[in-house]
Design a protein around this nucleic acid. Structure first.
Length: 836
RNA sequence: GCCGGGGUGGCGGAACUGGUAGACGCGAUGGACUUAAAAUCCAUUAGAACGUAAAGCGCUCUGUGUCGGUUCGAUUCCGAUCCCCGGCACCA
């Protein structure tokens, strides 16, 4: 009889619900364990295979922990604001509120078929006022603490869709949706001051258990550079130009460098085209050239400008600067590769020791000066390319002869002493732009009053409701601007007429704190209760896609630190331990609707059931590895489940009738009992360790081995006692419970079990004394090659093994007549004989 | 270009801390059951040469991207090199 999964899975889902098996007990924080998956983004589509691959295995991990007696909290929710729902609305006319609610209901039903331990009483939905009220509260908290500010800034703009795009919606410089090239546009926007936390965000990476590559990505993203800002004076004769009489040589600008040791090698300086001093520095003879260049730069897209493959361009301003270390007069250039937004917007050109500068100098025939000497090279040898490694200083006055690392400090000291420099640390990290000119998000809780100016909405007036009746089709401005009803309001301060901010928040703001909301999701008084939050957080295990490495995961860390500093929580990091599942591709590409290569999990759950499908996803390959989808192997897990089911059907009476002890003394067991008892204990150990480490594939293969031992052993029938067989099958069922929960519950009931396996801590700790083998196979190597194997009692003495092996016929063949040069014995493993 | 991760049978993948490479599963081949097919069960399955009349068995060699090194012994450590995947992309 085939395993009737349909009947069994609905039966147990119903029973779990009735008996409240998945209910979390948050009032009791002892042995608490918060297991979390990245919540679902329901705006676009229903659950796909990737969600199953994220949620199923994570639930297996959480269930193991529950079986082991932990108080497990495993919530789920919906990241329900965002572009896809809005785009869908624009296309179909169905309001995003309606489509999202419908989708959430459908997804909740799908999630139930997964059989995870979700407590749906605690679910969150970021698009509901009871949630986004607190997202707005969070915004105001940052605002009050001067961590939210408004500034005019360039943003990604898609002219066809008439909207800003989030960075992640810009793919290869083009709009993800319509393929239009994205341009930069200046708009007044809200920012969160994440840069205040740059240093701490970097430092604390060392104390969290995250994949190393994710931490590296964050480190690179934060991009700390230690260097110095150096002041250059503008040469007085630069302004030979009579029209600039009010401008004399007291004008200065600064450059940022991490290589002060190369300061003597500066042969020019370069400013960003946006540099504030540019107008003053441009001489009349260069004016046309500079203006033409600025025009060209303006025409470039951000992508073209940032392209490393593009040929370097730039023009001379006509002015000169004075190098503070040696008073050399050097030309001031502008070039588009210098970023106005980083450092001081000006850099010193050291063509001898910087690749970019080398290329520019070659192109415009600027001098190249060698100031760092490569070991083993001559000082007068011409540089063929920039030398960027550590070396010895030359042509650097009193610093000649110093190692460049030491010279960095010496020259920095000197500059600080003469007041021409100040050590500085720069970060690549920029403040987080949170405004979106979109409808489907949390409104920014700020009004603009004619007399009071920018006014935050008082907390007791939250939420600022997102109006339903809005023309959300794209138009050149935020859809909310078209809602008179929304825009026009009164100032909470003075009561006069005021206008609301018409932008909504980036959905990453919603997801930057949702893990705090779960334990308090029913509380309408606060965003999260202080006590329960400090007891249940941080999250113990967080599982989700690696694509969030520098967005969501960085924002959530930032918000956590802000809430700590404002006294709301008492921990530094939101996610102590992080795991990324691999990406399942199909026909070599990421699954997506537009490619038409999405694999629907329903195809498999309908044919094989949820347990078999989730088992297969876990068995398929290591959890953190990506790879192409292939359903051929699912037969194997289907057979595995059915073989177990058949085994239980065949032995139902025996299993119910046989009683057994919790534990046996292994040496008292007879041969086949002993082998099975040992194998079962070995499997218990392996399954426990492998699931803990997210190595589900090997956990399942060891269970398959155990089943083979149980059913395939040639002499098994009749030579094994019912007692040990029954004992083993009970353990097998418990080991299956985290992996295939419905199935295991059913098997347990077939054996006479009355209570759910997930009540109480039913996991069995393996018997340490029953793991070790009595006999071991010793490999025999001669001159490094395997020649034979022999059986020995475990822990046999080296000398005994040596004597026995030398009597072995195969060994004799190789050894006789030759001298034994060396014998290496590795305990319980092998013996290696070297002959000459 | 830079930073990560990875190359193991026909396929997905195992292999503790340098110690018998290929666990487990898929697929394939042969067989049993069946009127037949599916399902199920059993056996074989890295490649090559050789011995025996043959099945079987025995035996030897090669083999973890490629080349080299360390070692009694290397998928594992070291150096070089090629390829694939992911991330960043002039941050001075």
């Amino acid at each position: 009889m085939k395993y009737p999964f349909q009947e069994i899975e609905t039966k147990w889902q119903k029973r779990w619900e009735e008996e409240g098996i998945n209910k979390a007990n948050l009032s009791e924080a002892e042995k608490k364990l918060y297991a979390l998956v990245m919540f679902i983004y329901p705006s676009a589509a229903k659950m796909h295979i990737g969600h199953w691959f994220n949620y199923g295995p994570t639930d297996t991990w959480a269930r193991l922990k529950k079986l082991q007696g932990n108080n497990v909290f495993e919530p789920i929710g919906y990241d329900a604001f965002g572009l896809p729902a809005e785009n869908y609305a624009i296309k179909t006319g169905i309001h995003p509120h309606d489509s999202t609610l419908q989708n959430v209901n459908d997804i909740r039903d799908q999630l139930k078929t997964l059989g995870a331990m979700y407590d749906f009483d605690y679910e969150v939905n970021t698009s509901l006022p009871e949630y986004y009220k607190w997202t707005q509260w969070l915004f105001l908290l940052l605002y009050k603490n001067k961590l939210a500010y408004r500034q005019n800034a360039p943003v990604n703009w898609c002219s066809k869709d008439a909207t800003v795009l989030a960075n992640e919606q810009v793919v290869d410089g083009k709009c993800e949706r319509c393929g239009t090239e994205v341009i930069r546009k200046n708009l007044t926007q809200w920012f969160f001051k994440i840069t205040n936390y740059a240093e701490e965000l970097l430092q604390h990476l060392d104390k969290i258990d995250w994949p190393e590559k994710t931490k590296t990505m964050q480190r690179n993203w934060i991009g700390k550079s230690v260097g110095i800002e150096i002041e250059f004076a503008v040469a007085s004769d630069s302004q030979s130009d009579k029209s600039k009489s009010d401008f004399e040589s007291d004008s200065t600008f600064r450059v940022f460098t991490t290589r002060p040791d190369t300061l003597f090698g500066v042969t020019y300086v370069v400013l960003a085209p946006e540099h504030s001093l540019l107008k003053q520095l441009t001489t009349s003879s260069q004016k046309n050239l500079v203006e033409n260049y600025l025009e060209e730069v303006k025409k470039e897209t951000e992508i073209e400008r940032q392209s490393t493959t593009k040929e370097k361009t730039g023009v001379f301003t006509g002015s000169y600067a004075i190098n503070p270390i040696n008073n050399e007069k050097i030309p001031i250039w502008i070039a588009d590769y210098v970023l106005a937004t980083y450092g001081t917007g000006a850099v010193m050109g050291v063509p001898g020791h910087d690749e970019r500068d080398f290329i520019l100098a070659k192109k415009f025939s600027l001098p190249i000066k060698k100031v760092i000497l490569e070991e083993g090279k001559l000082a007068n040898e011409e540089l063929q390319s920039a030398f960027c490694e550590v070396g010895t200083l030359v042509n650097s006055g009193k610093f000649d002869g110093f190692n460049s690392e030491i010279a960095k400090e010496k020259i920095s000291d000197e500059l600080e002493k003469i007041g021409k420099g100040k050590r500085k640390i720069n970060f690549r990290l920029r403040d987080w732009l949170v405004s979106r000119q979109r409808y489907w998000g949390a409104p920014i809780p700020i009004v603009y009053c004619e007399s009071c100016g920018e006014v935050p909405i008082p907390e007791n007036q939250l939420p600022v409701l997102l109006p339903y009746n809005v023309d959300f089709r794209l138009g050149g401005e935020s859809p909310l601007a078209r809602s008179e009803e929304f825009v026009n309001t009164t100032c909470p301060n003075c009561g006069k007429k005021a206008k609301r901010d018409v932008d909504t928040m980036d959905t990453f703001v919603d997801s930057s704190w949702y893990f705090l909301r779960y334990p308090s999701s029913k509380n309408s008084e606060v965003a999260f209760e202080k006590n329960v939050t400090n007891q249940w957080l941080p999250v113990d295990k967080y599982v989700g896609g690696a694509e969030h490495a520098v967005m969501h995961l960085l924002y959530a860390r930032f918000i956590t630190k802000v809430l700590r500093d404002t006294g709301y929580i008492n921990f530094d990091e939101p996610f102590l331990s992080l795991v990324h599942q691999g990406t399942i591709t199909n026909k070599g590409a990421k699954m997506s609707k537009s490619r038409g290569n999405v694999v629907n999990p329903g195809t498999f759950t309908e044919q094989y059931g949820g347990d078999v499908f989730r088992l297969y996803l876990m068995f398929m390959r290591p959890y953190d590895e990506s790879g192409d989808w292939n359903d051929e192997g699912i037969q194997g897990t289907w057979r595995f489940v059915n073989r177990i089911y058949q085994l239980l059907l065949d032995n139902k009476e025996m299993l119910r009738a046989t009683s057994f002890k919790a534990k046996y003394e292994i040496q008292s067991l007879q041969s086949l009992d002993k082998i099975l008892y040992r194998k079962t204990n070995q499997t218990l150990k392996k399954v426990e360790e492998n699931i803990h480490d997210f190595h589900f594939n090997t956990a399942i293969s060891s269970l398959m081995e155990l089943l083979n031992e149980l059913t395939n052993s040639p002499a098994a029938a009749g030579k094994r006692t019912n007692e040990i067989t029954t004992w083993c099958i009970h353990k097998l069922i418990i080991m299956l419970a985290p992996l295939a929960p419905h199935f295991a519950e059913e098997l347990n009931e077939m054996c006479g079990g009355k209570e759910s396996l997930f009540k109480g801590n039913k996991w069995i700790r393996y018997d340490e004394t029953a793991i070790a083998e009595d006999e071991v196979t010793i490999a025999i190597q001669i001159n490094g090659k395997l020649r034979d194997t022999m059986q020995f009692p475990i822990d046999s003495h080296d000398e005994i093994i040596k004597q026995a092996v030398l009597q072995n016929d195969v060994v004799k063949k190789y050894v006789d007549g030759k001298a034994i040069a060396k014998v290496v014995v590795v305990k319980n493993k092998l013996i290696s004989i070297v002959v000459k």
